[in-house]
Nucleic acid binder design. Structure first.
Lengths: 146, 146
DNA sequence: TAGGTAAATGAAAATTCTTTTCAATTCCAA
DNA sequence: TTGGAATTGAAAAGAATTTTCATTTACCTA
């Protein structure tokens, strides 16, 4: 079950956030995109449909969505921040190319055992995790060796 | 085999880079540190031993070391960039309390299999990874339930 | 060991990216 | 409808990083 724009707007209202046209435009772009979106690239896309929207609003909307856990915030090389609609599995991991910043996603990480052990050892009530691998993507490997 | 300051300086000279006192000071701090260092925190530490060094020099030295693959550049939440001496194991992990920000480190994570699989599936040359668990530390659990 | 030269340095300015401030506008529950 | 709190955009502020440039320095060569 993928989060749709409709479901997201419902969650927003439930939490007391207002449903402005600007937010709808942002949500629309996020919901339809399968890519990682930086604030700037989101702005660019939203701006086409909805000129006059401010970059500030993009930042603010992203902050709300991240706070509600509806999107994942991630950090990669170069232009640091990017966001992606949250996937069904609940977790969401990345393989990031340290050269070009390209991102590949994967979801199965099998950290349950480790989580259990850490929880027992430290007493932490573990809520989630972030796993990122970094390295060189095939294309940048070729560039590097050339 | 851990990279020592000596080995790093040797590699620098080999590549035609000069060995300035500033660079030595930066290398010294990096080589002795087990933490992730942001440019700012590195600067702070180096500055104690070597006042007068500029933050610019920190950035430049980090760029060279990353280019030579002697340190790993990582991007995590908050203050985006951080660097870590490249370790044999390539590992460094945290358990972070989402309430008080307390951090517990752990090193054994057993991700070798996953790394191998991802590498085979994606063609990435994987250099390192970042694994962070988040949750509530014992003390904050008590506070929360109180 | 002195001298020349390319590389490195620090300060300041310039860029980017992000957040804050604030007055005007807009959503929406009553 | 209407009141009031939330939201908006513009501009200013702030933070992080990079560029520029004149000066200094490491280190190769003679």
């Amino acid at each position: 079950m993928r989060l749709t724009e409709k479901k997201i707007t419902a969650m927003l209202r439930q939490r007391g956030y207002k449903l402005t046209p600007q937010r709808q435009a942002v949500l629309n772009v996020i919901a339809l995109s399968h890519d990682h979106l930086t604030p700037a690239s989101l702005y660019e896309r939203v701006h086409q449909e909805h000129p006059g929207i401010g970059l500030v609003t993009i930042y603010r909307t992203l902050a709300i969505l991240a706070e509600l856990g509806l999107i994942c915030e991630m950090h990669a090389g170069g232009n640091c921040r990017s966001y992606l609609l949250r996937r069904p599995s609940g977790h969401h991991h990345h393989l990031i190319c340290s050269q070009c910043g390209g991102v590949v996603d994967f979801t199965d990480c099998d950290l349950g055992e480790l989580e259990k052990r850490l929880s027992a050892e430290t007493g932490f009530d573990i809520e989630g995790h972030l796993l990122e691998f970094s390295g060189l993507c095939p294309s940048c490997q070729r560039t590097a060796s050339a």
